[in-house]
Design a protein around this nucleic acid. Structure first.
Lengths: 355, 355
DNA sequence: TTCAATTTGTTCGTATGTATC
DNA sequence: GGATACATACGAACAAATTGA
């Protein structure tokens, strides 16, 4: 029984949607147009539309229009966002999550925290558990990100369930079309290499992680900087290592380069940890940093601070904020999955490991 | 967080319902009364009430009034534990939560993370939100813990709902009968004071925070150590300060002691932060640390590490683990609330701020 | 039973703010 | 910057249901 005008409008619009008169994400008439069409006030239209939004038939974009929603709804908003990180112990982690928390808190969301211990098994287990819980979205730091993701099914399942997610800090090669927020590693690798070039270096070695998108991108930046300066790229000056390698591996590679007699007075390292290892290793063989050899890091970690390593700053809090904002945008459909690709500008932090 | 009047009204009414100010089926004020009370139009009140009805907090009877609904409590076994902390930025935080995560993860629980920004308002807000969610238990770091807890009702309500909780790092004075896991601050205060006594000091000043259980307990340990060594307690050697005091306050108190001509070559500080301030202040007036004056901290924070301050180590990961284990024990009723009082042994960390 | 007061439900008109294109 | 569209808010009016005198 329909006793009121707004109920009639609800019934009418529902019918149009259910009979397929509208496509998903198609814009419906504006409130004023509907008001004229039905000969009612805009408030009455708003009441009808408001209820349809509650029921999941429509969604509104402020300043743009009202659109037809994917009818998967009926599920309650839990106002919980899962944050899946590799480790919690990292120096970087607290500030990233602080940024995430700030934005989510302001929007009435809570954080559901999970860790993967950087193993893909851990990640899969985590996600399966999360799928059984009621979450509105997920921010995930991928584990060992360069190798192809072996459980893409889980992500496809999340897509099917309409649960948006954003990769942070890194992204699987095969999933670069999905939303992500991360550092512009190419730019960072270029920035730090350019810094060494400006200091007068031309024979610059590089140590990069091979099974990690970040390692590959940083290497790309290193190559770009060399090319831009007209320095030929020499693959023999580059050391590649893997996660499973012992910590000595990168240093061994560098020693081989130095022993080959090749002139080399600068090393771009994958991250601060490697840089610290390299500095220690060089000191062990009697080479002083930075006077004999310049060394750079990446990430601006605690280690870089305490050891005075020139590095690339990681805008931690901003990354967290941007990631949270992107996810919220995906949840209320303000932005589309295709747009949700954010690269953050790296910043050079000069300390005293370069000369 | 709240940008509109109707949201404020929603929050207000939710609070009144959650804190038990209304009984189930009790009639709330009429729309016109609320409009007058909040100084808004009836439409605005209606918008708020409409949403609360949608969320199941209220139900309306045409021509009669609006009533408080029976809150349909979601059933147990959400396998979610809320962790409420003051800040996430702290140096200490990551390792504590790492310990919590380890134990909870092993038992199939997830962490729901919230921060209070160390304000009691934030804590109340947090808890209200959590009460509307489905959690099996809570680990909470209290805000400004020494002053009496002004929203004990919220904790009583959690008791009534059968949701166990454990205070970590500190506890409200009035709630010491509730479960807690924290450092043995008395033991810590004693340990650090004994250390100074062993170094030959007898005139030992103390700087303590007055509105904080930890400050009071650390002072107690300081007194005990003096008594055990047969040194008379001199209240004039103790500086008390409050959270709201300016950062200079503790140093001013210490200067007054030094200017009084009293012999004093050692200071026990409430925490590392104060110790760092004191060291800086002493250097400003030309006193060298540790040669002229020995200074100790508390907490083994990043500051203590970088400034080389002798301090008391806070077994961070263990605290997290013990807290999680205690909570799990409470959840499956293996242990009773009365037993759930854990004090952890502090550890002395010697650096070079004492001589 | 009637009636008046009260309270929620529906609708209209208007105004201002703010996001988007 | 201007036009458009949604978001919030105020004021007013009348309808419909309930309540109690």
């Amino acid at each position: 029984m329909i006793n009121s005008k707004y109920e009639l409008i609800i019934k009418d619009i529902k019918k149009d949607i259910n009979t397929g008169k509208f496509d998903v994400d198609e814009k419906i008439s504006s409130e004023n147009q509907l008001a004229t069409k039905y000969g009612v006030s805009r408030q009455t239209v708003r009441k009808a539309i408001g209820q349809l939004i509650d029921e999941g038939y429509l969604y509104a974009k402020h300043g743009s229009g009202t659109y037809v929603a994917e009818r998967v709804m009926k599920k309650r908003h839990s106002k919980n966002i899962a944050v899946v990180s590799t480790y919690m112990s990292d120096y970087i982690f607290p500030r990233v999550i602080q940024g995430i928390n700030q934005v989510l808190d302001e929007n009435g969301y809570s954080i559901l925290l999970k860790t993967t211990n950087n193993s893909r098994k851990g990640e899969a287990w985590c996600m399966e558990e999360l799928l059984s819980k009621n979450i509105d979205g997920m921010l995930i730091e991928p584990s060992q990100s360069a190798i192809s993701c072996q459980h893409q099914v889980l992500y496809d399942q999340m897509d099917a369930m309409g649960i948006p997610y954003v990769f942070i800090q890194g992204c699987y090669e095969a999933m670069m079309d999905r939303p992500y927020v991360m550092i512009d590693d190419v730019e960072g690798g270029m920035l730090i290499t350019e810094h060494l070039i400006k200091l007068g270096h031309r024979n610059i070695a590089g140590i990069f992680k091979a099974d990690d998108t970040q390692g590959i991108l940083r290497h790309k930046g290193y190559v770009k900087a060399l090319a831009a300066a007209g320095i030929p790229y020499d693959p023999d000056l580059v050391v590649w290592y893997h996660t499973k390698d012992k910590t000595m591996k990168p240093m061994e590679g560098l020693l081989r380069i130095l022993e080959s007699g090749r002139p080399c007075h600068a090393v771009v390292c994958y991250n601060d940890e490697i840089a610290a290892d390299v500095i220690k290793g060089l000191q062990n063989i009697g080479r002083s940093v930075p006077h004999d050899i310049s060394v750079t890091g990446f990430d601006n970690s605690l280690l870089a601070y305490s050891k005075g390593i020139t590095t690339i700053a990681h805008p931690q809090e901003e990354l967290g904020k941007k990631a949270a904002e992107t996810l919220l945008g995906l949840i209320d459909k303000r932005i589309s999955k295709k747009e949700a690709h954010v690269l953050l500008e790296p910043i050079l932090v000069e300390r005293n490991s370069c000369f």
